[in-house]
Design a protein around this nucleic acid. Structure first.
Lengths: 263, 263
DNA sequence: CGGCTGATTGATTGTGCTCAATCAGTGTGG
DNA sequence: CCACACTGATTGAGCACAATCAATCAGCCG
């Protein structure tokens, strides 16, 4: 867990800061000149990495900071009054988690590490102050939040209109794109950071349904999957499924008619 | 009245600006001292109201401004590659529409007036500049966007987990709250700004299903509805339905057993 | 009147959920 | 070492909720 109250600058960190960070091109500093990157990294701190299942913040915690995922990943979780959990997002390296806390001053979701996960902690008040000095940084922050709003709208569309197989195909393509923004990671072969249950919950499905989908995707040769290891074997087919252009054969039906489609 | 005509057309407006606006308590100026409200209203302009169906901006339009709804209402619409439309939001007086354009620099949705609708246009670059001078305004802007992100997460949860009747009950309670934030509007009796088709699309339902739900809500005495006119007759029951504590009797079933519940 | 849009109602179907059992993998303790 | 428990993933059988298809109706306007 990240210590909120510890040393003001935990620069004991072994890394060279934002200037040397290999995620710099994806992160806030992307918009800044070298000199300004340094003033940003002066307010950034790093705790020790969270273990899998570690909690970055909980619903109701006072909002102090936003966090850039440096390595690993998070899920964010909302909980209804009835206690039902909803996974509302996954956050991969280079992405920012914590915007839900700004409005009320307390976090509206719980962020849980899916793997061993390191973050850059950015105290929000100091970031706001810095934004007043650095117009590009202010704009970058607003852009990031706007991007999250757009992504949410896209999820809204998917949940409102798409069938289960379309949802999974869209999700795999989306993860492929986001995972492979980092150098050295293939968009065709990567490891899913989350267990099936989290993925199904996020997609508004039940784990059984998701499991059947994975099997059928494999059977049709779209993907191959072993646990969390995933390989996308036929991007064009996944694209077609995502766009609703080909339907997935159900159990017991002859899947051969799919051969008619030129995927 | 505002200062002399440094601005071309905006001052033709008949109103006294933000200082006199009856929505001020809901809008950005809520956070500002009187003197600062004036510097904000100096960058705000008002066009003539849009007619029902009028388009504020379209997908792909260059992003220039955000807009505060002054009267009337909007829906925002996303369109998939296949041409399927998705209503991603409704915006009522005092709410801000247009944040989707910041990230890409072009709007990612289309905003369409549901009624005769007046807006306050806020050029975004000038707003960003002003935010650098007025920390409270900057924070208020970030809060508003954060609130939209949280609302989107809530929608995600609803679409992923809730049955059709729960969705409608939640929607009616949500609209009731938002509509009645303005003075003089009862939370129990108001006019739905949108047609059935838009509401059903937003909720991820088909218009036929929504129509049946309205009928059953009326039959059970939760609401009474005449076209877009709506009265909430039993908030507690709606709350219970929204929370999944009572199920709606389906056609042909005896709804009397519902009397067992103490709503 | 006829044409149009939006809302409603009915009959039927199908997708994805429910319930239940099984299985693999992992860690635990006797 | 093996039995046991536990979690996460998988598979099967049956059902229910909401979609689909189709028809009707009300209101509005030319």
């Amino acid at each position: 867990m990240v210590q909120s109250g510890t040393l003001p600058h935990s620069l004991a960190s072994r890394c060279g800061g934002c200037v040397c960070c290999n995620l710099r091109g994806l992160c806030l500093p992307e918009c800044l000149a070298m000199a300004d990157v340094e003033s940003l990294q002066r307010i950034v701190s790093h705790g020790r990495p969270l273990p899998p299942g570690g909690i970055l913040y909980r619903i109701g915690d006072a909002f102090e900071s936003i966090y850039v995922v440096r390595s690993g990943s998070f899920k964010t979780l909302h909980v209804t009054e009835q206690g039902a959990e909803q996974v509302t997002g996954f956050y991969l390296p280079g992405e920012i988690v914590g915007f839900d806390g700004i409005d009320e001053g307390t976090h509206q979701s719980t962020a849980i590490a899916l793997e061993t996960t390191g973050v850059c902690r950015i105290p929000f008040q100091r970031l706001e102050a810095l934004c007043r000095m650095l117009p590009a940084l202010q704009h970058r922050l607003l852009r990031t939040m706007s991007g999250e709003i757009c992504a949410n709208h896209h999820v809204h569309q998917v949940l409102a209109q798409c069938s289960a197989d379309e949802r999974l195909a869209l999700m795999l393509l989306n993860l492929s794109r986001r995972v492979s923004r980092r150098q050295g990671i293939s968009p065709l072969r990567f490891r899913l950071p989350m267990p099936r249950a989290d993925l199904s919950n996020y997609l508004g499905l039940v784990p059984e349904t998701l499991s059947r989908l994975f099997r059928r995707f494999c059977e049709n040769g779209w993907i191959s999957s072993d646990g969390r290891e995933l390989a996308l074997k036929d991007i064009a087919a996944l694209r077609a499924v995502a766009d609703g252009n080909i339907q997935l054969a159900r159990d017991g039906t002859d899947p051969d008619h799919l051969a008619a489609y030129n995927y």
